[in-house]
Design a protein around this nucleic acid. Sequence first.
DNA 1: CCAATAACAATAATTATTATCAATATTACC
DNA 2: GGTAATATTGATAATAATTATTGTTATTGG
Lengths: 132, 132
Amino acid sequence: MTTTKFSRQRESIKDYLSTTKDHPTADMVYDHIKKIYPNISLGTVYRNLNFLVEQGSIIKVSYGNGSDHFDGNVLPHYHFICRNCSAIEDISMPKEAVEQFLHSADENFAGTIEASSTYFYGLCKKCSENKH
Amino acid sequence: MTTTKFSRQRESIKDYLSTTKDHPTADMVYDHIKKIYPNISLGTVYRNLNFLVEQGSIIKVSYGNGSDHFDGNVLPHYHFICRNCSAIEDISMPKEAVEQFLHSADENFAGTIEASSTYFYGLCKKCSENKH
DNA sequence: CCAATAACAATAATTATTATCAATATTACC
DNA sequence: GGTAATATTGATAATAATTATTGTTATTGG
Ligand SMILES: [Mn+2]
Ligand SMILES: [Mn+2]
Ligand SMILES: [Zn+2]
Ligand SMILES: [Zn+2]
């Protein structure tokens, strides 16, 4: 068994993700942590983000396009991506709606469904309003 | 207005995707078309795949991990990715189940949802059976 | 047929991410 | 507290997927 040692860099990354509402990319996390640990390397950020995802402390948000994003909120919820400003926002849905959807998928598939990921796209509130 | 000229390479790519049940990557399309046009370049494959997606003749299947896949079936359907053999399979769902899910998302979001993408993961029929 | 130009093949460039490795920090033990 | 073992780091090289560039070729309307 390989033990896990404390690292102030990793702690800082976890703290940042647990306090921000944003869903930053590795690069954005890097820029933020650099203010606290100016010598941190981008590789260290990637290494720790992957470590934390593995550990279940954060989640990775990868909707095909461009870089992966990271989220300190590990409670089950969905994500919306604005086609205008690229902001990522949370969507919570009633458990029944989700379960009914997943159940229907299961009914229509021959293998075993273990997980799923859904992303929503469109215009966020701000962008909807600004486009009159 | 910039006119579109015929290209036997593009036609061949479209034909291939419309006749295969697979969901090949750009590289797999390249390997296939090379048998017919040995001088075709990978850049040409990418250029035409993007063109055809833009045009709505094919769809792009990008679930975060690795390369994008392409699908000649443009009718609405979902995709399943096997965690063991990486095969991509189609899932069709009753319209009501889908609509109920999308409606619920819309109810719980302040902006405007225009589209969504869902991927299912697990073990395909074959892999489920082989792991008894 | 021929001029205009869309599309091509070859290849360089870019982007996102992972791997390598010598130096450093953390931790368990005395 | 000092020290040995090793997890983690910063720096940097490597990889993988995709896009951009450019000079050449194929298509097409006149
Ligand atoms: Mn979130
Ligand atoms: Mn399909
Ligand atoms: Zn927006
Ligand atoms: Zn399988």
